[in-house]
């Protein structure tokens, strides 16, 4: 394994393009995320935020460009000067290190909360059932759901489901966590409990990339805010600059539009 100290950025996105048929969704996006950094991505719908996030763990294959985590290529490898896609097994191994929280939770309905949190550590990392359950209980406790361990997802509220989904990601101890509009599918009164958990993770030093519409949350939690529009980054910088003193007209218009809601 790689023994040299990791000094470069944790995540390096190098000129990602993504095209669905004729539709150009990403047009050469590049950015770095440092270890422990919290980056929020904001922007109008259709701006490519979600697609960019999905490209990072190769749920979506970029049409061009490369993703690196700890300087290691994701989803492909270089062979004789050419880039080739990884096998299913190799790709799965890389994905262990990248947690993904979905807008619609995507909990496994045939498993209890604890089952959801323990299945990947057992089947992917090879933990024993007991090890996985001990760890799973800790993770559920961390998201405030110790009392819901044996409930099935359909008996949980949206906010509780999303917190189980976060615990499920934490159980894999990822280097990087990606949040795809984690609160957009929730009733307003349930958003707070999920944001609280995310805030706690941020304070503990996790590296997070957060696609969100929660401007207030983004300004409080992130080290950097990235504004995307029409498939690329328009403006980025400290939250107070991008959110309160934006340089670009498009950013101003978007923020104005959001505040008028």
């Amino acid at each position: 394994m790689n023994t040299k100290p990791n000094v470069g950025p944790l995540l390096r996105i190098d000129s990602i393009h993504k095209q669905f048929g004729q539709l150009k969704v990403l047009t050469g996006v590049s950015m770095n995320v440092e270890r422990g950094e919290k980056v929020s991505i904001i922007g109008p719908s259709g701006s490519g935020k979600t697609t960019l996030l999905r490209c990072i763990n190769y749920l979506e294959k970029p049409s061009a460009g490369h993703i690196y985590i700890d300087d290691k290529l994701i989803g492909e490898k270089e062979m004789g000067g050419r880039y080739v896609h990884l096998s299913d097994r190799e790709l799965a191994r890389e994905r262990r290190e990248i947690g993904f929280v979905f807008q619609r939770f995507n909990l496994f309905p045939h498993l209890t909360a604890l089952g959801n949190v323990t299945i990947a550590p057992q089947k992917v990392l090879g933990l024993s059932r007991k090890e996985a359950e001990d760890q799973g209980r800790k993770m559920l406790e961390k998201v405030g759901l110790s009392h819901k361990i044996s409930e099935y997802p359909e008996r949980l509220s949206g906010g509780q489901q999303q917190r189980v989904a976060i615990a499920r990601v934490l159980a894999m101890q990822p280097k990087l966590m990606l949040f795809d509009e984690a609160t957009s599918a929730l009733d307003p009164e349930l958003i707070g409990e999920v944001l609280r958990v995310m805030r706690q993770l941020a304070e503990e030093g996790s590296t997070m990339v957060i696609v969100t519409h929660e401007i207030q949350f983004a300004s409080e939690v992130s080290d950097r805010v990235v504004f995307m529009d029409q498939g690329n980054i328009v403006e980025q910088g400290k939250p107070r600059e991008v959110l309160f003193k934006p340089k670009e007209t498009r950013t101003r218009e978007f923020l104005k539009h959001i505040q008028e809601r």
Binding site: A92, R104, N106, A120
Partner: peptide, 14 residues
């Protein structure tokens, strides 16, 4: 979304 969640947790398609 079920398959995507499983893949994102590091499971192979199988």
């Amino acid at each position: 979304g079920q398959t995507e969640a499983a893949l994102s947790l590091g499971m192979t398609p199988v």
